[in-house]
Design a protein around this nucleic acid. Structure first.
Length: 492
RNA sequence: GGCGCUAUCGUCUAAGGGUUAGGACAAGGCCCUCUCAAGGCUUAAAUACGGGUUCGAAUCCCGUUAGCGCUACCA
């Protein structure tokens, strides 16, 4: 059996979209499930939309999220295509180059071949002429598209021109799509599409067919939106005498309004999810479940990449589009955060804490992390929970302290006594703190909860915090006593 | 307009002719509890509509409706 080879071919026109992440994920899962290879190809054929630095950010994002390809552009190729490239993400492979702007010769010669075969022709129609044609067609309520004016004109090779494919009339095309099943077109409605642009760059249609053939791609997994142009690609493979790969058109990832997920639905760039404090593992797990499911009554939701790879098959890919739910992603992110080793979580938290301007003390952080772990959905959720540890001065929510029958005099007494008890401790640890605080409640004839609330706000400033005894312990004996005394003074 | 794709709780989905239509997120309730969480238990919530085929349809077929995609020298 020939090797299973898939490819992900993003355009460097901006940041990596979360929908692209899903496509790339499926490419990798499918290839690796079958012991094959996933290839990364850079589709930079649109010179007008090219964004400098986009390749760099694309592969950086891919790498961050944990999507690793078996073949792809080398450092040299990327550097040639993207001036700002810093290096370090090159992959390489036998089918190099993997950057389409570096494969121009192949597209050009294939276009010539197509002309020789009589299925393509040169066209020198100006954009004005095309524009006028379109206007007239619209006015006559006809189908809009190129009339085929240059089909028989034998436009010379030495004038500026494009190369167009001659769409055959009355040709039925059948696609055996691995996801959609058999899709049939009784006639192809496309109107002589451009294959090679006047700047000598190919359009997607030509480039993808040439490269998928050259790179021996066995399965093309791509977004649903390509389904309409699949007949063109099939015809191209046929005309060239090449065997077409298996196509699998993936259901779209939608926003809440049922339209393709875009900016107005919220964050859509992978980098925004990274900045918002999502974990790569959670993102991958979640994206796998939009448009794919393990089936067979499976009730598990959390899957590692290994499990996904083992279980992923195309026949479990759904036909219908799926709405991207930020809520569920958040829940899943929380699940992943809770499953992290404490040291791991510490490391992931640091950039966010530093970003919030907190001067993090490693020891304090180490003490508190296990206690905030089940309180986080997103990494930055930690900031309000731990900030009291790293601030020299805290603001106290006195209004919340003096609620429910608690008055200033009583609160002051609690603070004084607590300060005394804390200060007197020989071993300052969580059980001792708890014992002291609980004992105090009894002595004063107060509910433990009432005492805790006063101490909580006195020590942390906030009414919502990690568990009290652990928080006091994490802060340290000296600072805890100081903060209790400070509060007592504040209370008159 | 044309061509194509799609249709199960609000959302992601399971059920591949026979199930009380299952699970998860979100929502509500209860338990646990030092705040907030986490966790456990629990409630509500769906086969778009109409025809067939069949002893029997969420499931197969046809139609309707609705949504989406494509219809560029963009991908």
């Amino acid at each position: 059996m020939p090797e299973i080879r898939t490819r992900f071919a993003p355009s460097p026109t901006g940041l990596l979209h979360i929908g692209g992440v899903r496509t790339a994920l499926f490419e990798i899962l499918f290839a690796h499930h079958h012991g094959g290879k996933a290839i990364l190809r850079i589709d930079d054929t649109d010179r007008t939309r090219l964004v400098p630095g986009a390749i760099q950010s694309l592969i950086e994002d891919l790498s961050w999220v944990g999507l690793h390809f078996d073949e792809g552009p080398s450092d040299e190729e990327i550097a040639r295509a993207d001036e700002g490239y810093q290096g370090g993400f090159g992959i390489g492979g036998a089918a190099a180059p993997y950057v389409q702007s570096q494969r121009l010769g192949r597209y050009k010669e294939t276009a010539e071949e197509l002309i020789r075969l009589g299925v393509a022709y040169r066209c020198d129609c100006t954009s004005e002429r095309l524009e006028k044609e379109r206007e007239e067609q619209t006015a006559r309520k006809e189908m809009v598209g190129y009339s085929g004016y240059c089909r028989e004109r034998n436009v010379a090779a030495d004038v500026p021109h494009v190369v167009r494919f001659k769409i055959p009339a009355d040709r039925a095309v059948v696609l055996a799509d691995a996801v959609k099943g058999e899709v049939r077109w009784d006639q192809i409605i496309l109107r002589d599409p451009v294959l090679l642009k006047s700047d000598n760059f190919p359009t997607y249609h030509l480039a993808t067919v040439v490269d998928d053939h050259d790179m021996r791609i066995s399965h093309v997994l791509r977004a649903d939106e390509w389904l309409s142009t699949a007949p063109l690609h099939l015809l191209l493979f046929e005309a060239l005498g090449w065997e077409a790969p298996v196509f699998a058109h993936l259901p779209p990832v939608l926003g809440t309004d049922g339209k393709k997920l875009s900016k107005r639905h919220g964050a859509t760039f992978l980098s925004s999810f990274r900045e918002a404090g999502y974990l790569p593992e959670a993102i991958l797990n979640f994206m796998a479940l939009i448009g794919w499911s393990p089936g067979e009554g499976e009730q598990q939701e959390i899957f590692s990449m290994e499990e996904l790879t083992r279980r992923f098959t195309l026949d479990r890919v759904n036909n219908a589009g799926g709405v991207f739910s930020y809520e569920k992603l958040k829940w899943m992110n929380g699940m992943y955060i809770r499953a992290l080793a404490a040291e791991d979580l510490e490391g992931r938290l640091r950039p966010f804490l530093a970003g919030a301007g907190l001067a993090v003390d490693g020891e304090k952080l180490r003490r508190i992390v296990p206690h905030i772990q089940q309180r986080l959905e997103l990494l930055p959720d930690a900031i309000p929970l731990v900030q009291f540890l790293f601030q020299a001065k805290i603001e106290r929510d006195m209004a919340s302290m003096l609620k429910k029958g608690m008055d200033a005099a009583k609160a002051k007494e609690i603070c004084l006594r607590a300060a005394e008890a804390m200060g007197a401790m020989e071993t300052f640890d969580t059980p001792s703190i708890e014992a002291a605080l609980r004992g105090m409640g009894e002595q004063l004839g107060l509910q433990a909860g009432a005492v805790f609330t006063v101490v909580r706000i006195a020590v942390t400033g906030q009414k919502v915090t990690p568990p009290l005894f652990e928080s006091v312990y994490a802060l340290g004996q000296k600072e805890a006593v100081e903060r209790l005394r400070e509060t007592a003074e504040l209370l008159g």
